[in-house]
């Protein structure tokens, strides 16, 4: 057993981080938000999408003989964690899942989205839409970088079997984005807590602030172990559980980061709300938390 990143996995993570920070750093993120404000909704950056495709972002799990990178779910999870850190917009998970079946998805020339329960993201921008989106109507999305449509949707009566049948890859790639976002929120909070001074000292020296930060790390690291392990085993139930922890780490992490940042955390200008809104959105994609919990309970 060696449940740590291998050298290759570390290198992959560093490479993806470098690519994303260079191509979608903080300035690009804010420019995208501003653009969305001006145009009444975000635009998908097709060029960035193609660059991601060229870099193999969507093809990590595709076999080499099909033009992919030939790696596994753990590697894809590491890449998606980085995407979550920088809040990379777009139907990333749906496109990755379609890499083997939809021509152009792997290369980043075809943008794929799918209906996930009652919601579908990026419906207008996508080239290919999977699932039933009949009757979809646009909603004013809480996340300025994710356009949403609502699909008429009857929740199915037996959730447990439904979750077990769910492809663990989609669940885990979303969870990986949550994990990256949780880690980033923790970093933002810690940075702020070290710099901001009140009462003549950094607020990070106050225990009430310290303990918020410590719990952010605890939630992130516990979720990390869960998400990585589920990516290694590929077990749908383990993925369902890992996703619960990753959702919690991302949502609570952004909330606590907001609290640590004070009034600044409540501003549009801060990135905290972008993390929180995307984290909220991701918790609604895929099987519901209730279905995941029921599936885990049923297996006890």
């Amino acid at each position: 057993m060696h449940f740590q990143l291998t050298d290759d996995q570390r290198a992959l993570r560093a490479g993806v981080r470098q690519l994303l920070e260079g191509r979608f750093g903080r300035d690009a993120l804010r420019a995208a938000v501003d653009g969305s404000e001006r145009q009444g909704g975000p635009a998908l950056d097709r060029e960035l999408w193609r660059e991601l495709g060229e870099a193999g972002f969507f093809a990590l799990r595709l076999p080499e003989k099909e033009g992919g990178v030939g790696l596994g779910l753990p590697e894809a999870v590491l890449a998606f964690e980085e995407a979550g850190r920088v809040l990379l917009p777009g139907p990333l998970v749906a496109t990755e899942l379609a890499a083997a079946t939809v021509p152009g998805a792997a290369a980043g020339t075809t943008v794929v989205t799918r209906a996930e329960g009652p919601l579908v993201a990026w419906l207008d921008a996508a080239d290919v839409v999977l699932g039933d989106v009949a009757g979809a109507r646009p909603v004013r999305s809480v996340d300025p970088l994710t356009p949403l449509h609502r699909v008429p949707f009857e929740p199915r009566p037996s959730p447990p079997a439904d979750t077990a049948a769910h492809d663990p890859a989609g669940v885990l790639l979303t969870a990986a984005e949550q994990l990256g976002s949780a880690a980033r929120s923790c970093e933002l909070a810690v940075q702020h807590a070290r710099q901001r001074e009140q009462f003549g000292r950094p607020i990070g020296s106050f225990q009430a602030v310290k303990h918020l930060c410590a719990q952010m790390l605890v939630r992130t690291e516990t979720a990390r172990a869960a998400v990585y392990a589920a990516a290694v085993t590929g077990d749908p139930l383990e993925a369902a559980g890992a996703r619960l922890l990753a959702d919690e780490a991302a949502v609570r992490g952004a909330r606590d980061c907001l609290q640590v940042c004070g009034g600044m955390g409540f501003t549009w200008e801060s990135d905290v709300h972008l993390h929180l809104k995307r984290a909220w959105l991701r918790t609604e994609l895929g099987p519901s938390a209730a279905a995941s919990e029921e599936a885990l309970a049923a297996a006890l």
């Binding site: 057993m1 449940f3 740590q4 516990t222 869960a226 922890l245 209730a290 885990l296 309970a297």
Partner: peptide, 25 residues
Amino acid sequence: LRRRLGRLSAEFTALWRLTQWNVSE
């Protein structure tokens, strides 16, 4: 109650994985 048990199942699986992570480290 069922959901609470389900969440605890995720929790203890994660703690086991975290143990394996720490031991490997």
